[in-house]
Every structure is written in structure tokens, then in C-alpha cells.
């Protein structure tokens, strides 16, 4: 299965189809993750983004994949999602001066009045929280895929 041992060269057909499909899958993943009209929330959107990335890696190989999403970015995004989610909960406490519970988003109505958004709570949940979940899920699956599929080539070069 691994490319080197089976003499499997990069196939042009797979590369062109992947080049064609990856952007649309990414947009679909974002659509699923963002907002909440359709089915699916942060978790499904993150999975679809991870699947799009994995398609890119299977078509173009792990080196180019690693260039596309370097390790530092990957670990950063994994924790960014959690910060977004828990940060939104903390904002609810800070804004309501400890009157509201931890994840009680209705405490952001003072901020909403300033920004003039009527259902700020709905947008908060639909965007900030879901995107937080999506980012963590995507980065988690991508980093797992990479740790499993990463060939220790530069391991021989390194040691």
C-alpha cells in the first residue's frame, strides 16, 4: 500500500480529479459546519474537512501534504478549537459579571446591544461554538492521519 514499496508512481488521473474535488469538498465542509440551517454541526463539518485533506494527501503524497498543513499549524489548530469553545463559555461569565453560569450564552446580550445584533446568542452558538468544534475535529483527525501515515524517511536521514 505504501507508495515506495509497490512502485506506485503518482497517477496523473488521480491528481487531476483530486485537484478538482478538494476545493468543493472544503466548501461543503464549511457549509456543514457553519450556520445551522442544514443538518450537521461542527463535528460533521470538521470530519468532512479532514476527509478533503486526506484525499489531497492520498493524491499528492505526504510531503506535499505536510507542506500544505505543517505540524506547527496542526497542533495550533487542535487547541484553537478548544480555546474558542471554552472561551465563548468564559465570555458569558465575564460579560455578565459572574451572574450567568459558565456556558450560558444568553449573558452576551450587553455585547449584542453594543454590536446591534438581535439574536446574538444564536449566531454565537451557530458560528463561534460550532466552528470551534469543527477546527478541533479537523486538526485532530489530520494529525492522527499524519502520525499514522508518516513514513520515517527523514528518520534515516536524521539519525
Amino acid at each position: 500500500m505504501n507508495p515506495e514499496s509497490t512502485g506506485y508512481k503518482r497517477d496523473v488521473i488521480i491528481q487531476t480529479t483530486a485537484k478538482l474535488m478538494v476545493p468543493f469538498i472544503l466548501v461543503f465542509g464549511l457549509y456543514v459546519m457553519m450556520g445551522s440551517e442544514g443538518t450537521g454541526g461542527g463535528f460533521q463539518g470538521g470530519c468532512i474537512l479532514a476527509a478533503a485533506y486526506i484525499l489531497y494527501v492520498t493524491a499528492f503524497g505526504t510531503e506535499k501534504g505536510r507542506v500544505m498543513m505543517p505540524e506547527s499549524w496542526n497542533t495550533f489548530f487542535t487547541s484553537l478549537g478548544l480555546y474558542l469553545y471554552d472561551g465563548a463559555g468564559l465570555v458569558a461569565i465575564i460579560l455578565s459579571l459572574a451572574a450567568a453560569q459558565f456556558l450560558n450564552y444568553s449573558a452576551i446580550w450587553p455585547l449584542a446591544n453594543i454590536l446591534g445584533i438581535a439574536e446574538a446568542r444564536g449566531y454565537m452558538v451557530a458560528f463561534v461554538v460550532d466552528v470551534g468544534i469543527g477546527i478541533t475535529v479537523m486538526a485532530a483527525f489530520v494529525s492522527q492521519f499524519f502520525d499514522l501515515a508518516w513514513k520515517e524517511k527523514e528518520e534515516e536521514k536524521g539519525e
Binding site: 438581535a118 451557530a126 478541533t136 486538526a139
Partner: peptide
């Protein structure tokens, strides 16, 4: 004020569960 009741249920009414579900995925990675 969330349009999708499933998302409201998941992210808002049961925000704690989803938070720890996300921590599970994070710790998996």
C-alpha cells in the same frame, strides 16, 4: 435563537456534554 433545534440541543442546552466530547477528540489526537 438558534435556527436548528438539533444544534441548539447539542451546543447550547447540552453544551457541557459537547465540550467534553470535544476534549475526548483532542485527547485522542
Amino acid at each position: 435563537a438558534v435556527i436548528n433545534t438539533v444544534t441548539a440541543g447539542l451546543a447550547d442546552y447540552r453544551g457541557y456534554d459537547t465540550m467534553f466530547e470535544e476534549t475526548v477528540i483532542f485527547s485522542g489526537a
